[in-house]
Design a protein around this nucleic acid. Structure first.
Ligand SMILES: [Zn+2]
Ligand SMILES: [Zn+2]
Ligand SMILES: [Zn+2]
Ligand SMILES: [Zn+2]
Lengths: 165, 165
DNA sequence: CAAGAAATTGATATAATATATCGTTCGGTA
DNA sequence: TACCGAACGATATATTATATCAATTTCTTG
């Protein structure tokens, strides 16, 4: 495969965009993905993904929990983690390790390892997919005689919306 | 400043190297750094750094705690976190967010943001300093209209020692 | 449909990580 | 010595995550 030096950049979510549309798209994608793989997109898993995709930002597991089940009939913590594990396995949800938080993936495909961008002010998360970074990690790994298995890149800062009031 | 496409790579700690020598070097560096800046390198802070630099791998805050004070007279959790905060402020210690763990920095200077490499088997941590990755992050940030403030790159995998038994 | 297997969820408890608060001690300085 | 601020001790609590086992639901097969 050819190694390109250009990166494909995912759009950072716009400030005025329609969250409901995002959410519907992500839910439909989850449905078809599960259908294809013979997996069950249960109501609980759906609810977790709906909450994350509507929020469109990082949420902690207990933040998600608080929004589930309409006060009564709230599931135990383990249920949230189980749903999150399921969704992360399918790359429908990612974990932001620097915040112990989770967010819904906005990309159609994951061709390569991705980079996460999170705004400190509004908590909105963007994703990019730079092959250049991936290639450089591979090159460094060679020098270090290290075999990489997972690559985690998280950049915190300020998004455009929060810088231009 | 010129932008180079080569990266400066820190040595990954060798399997047979002398931990005591590492530790002594790190302690001396901390001493001189605190002296320069008029900061106090107290016995508690020293003990935390000694533990981390001797271990030469990621340790959780409570792992560090267990090794402090010789069973009796063990400080409370907050004390460890206070020392870690102090040491991280000086870049003498880094936090591995994907593991909620801490390790002693092995570099003399931090010219640029660094990348962390951690072996899943032995827990040993290496650091690299790739300007290429930093530059690419800056370029992506421009496209995303994002202002980066912290860049966290963590690569998990297998080190050479653990792959060649 | 009935029975059994497998996956999912509920319920409870607990582990692991991190912070808040406040009073005391320690170090340097006037 | 008296003072001030940094550091520490003590206690409590918050936050994040997992373990275990029983109950329920769903799927499979006869
Ligand atoms: Zn994604
Ligand atoms: Zn923002
Ligand atoms: Zn370092
Ligand atoms: Zn190793």
């Amino acid at each position: 495969m050819a190694v390109t030096t250009t990166a494909q950049v995912a759009p950072f979510p716009k400030s005025g965009h329609d969250h409901a549309r995002c959410r519907d798209w992500m839910i439909k994608r989850a449905e078809s993905l599960c259908l294809d793989q013979g997996l069950r997109f249960t109501p609980q898993r759906r609810e977790v993904l709906e909450i994350l995709s509507t929020a469109h930002q990082c949420l902690g597991a207990y933040d998600i929990l608080e929004r589930m089940g309409h006060r009564d009939r709230r599931p135990p913590p383990a249920a949230v983690y189980r749903s999150l594990d399921f969704l992360m396995e399918l790359n429908l949800v990612h974990r932001m390790t620097s915040r112990n938080a989770f967010f819904a993936c906005t990309r159609a495909e994951h061709a390569a390892p991705i980079q996460f961008w999170i705004c400190r002010h509004c908590g909105v998360v963007g994703e990019s997919e730079s092959t250049l970074i991936t290639d450089e990690v591979a090159r460094l790994a060679g020098e270090l005689a290290f075999r990489p298995e997972t690559i985690n890149v998280e950049i915190e800062g300020a998004c455009q919306t929060c810088r231009t009031p």
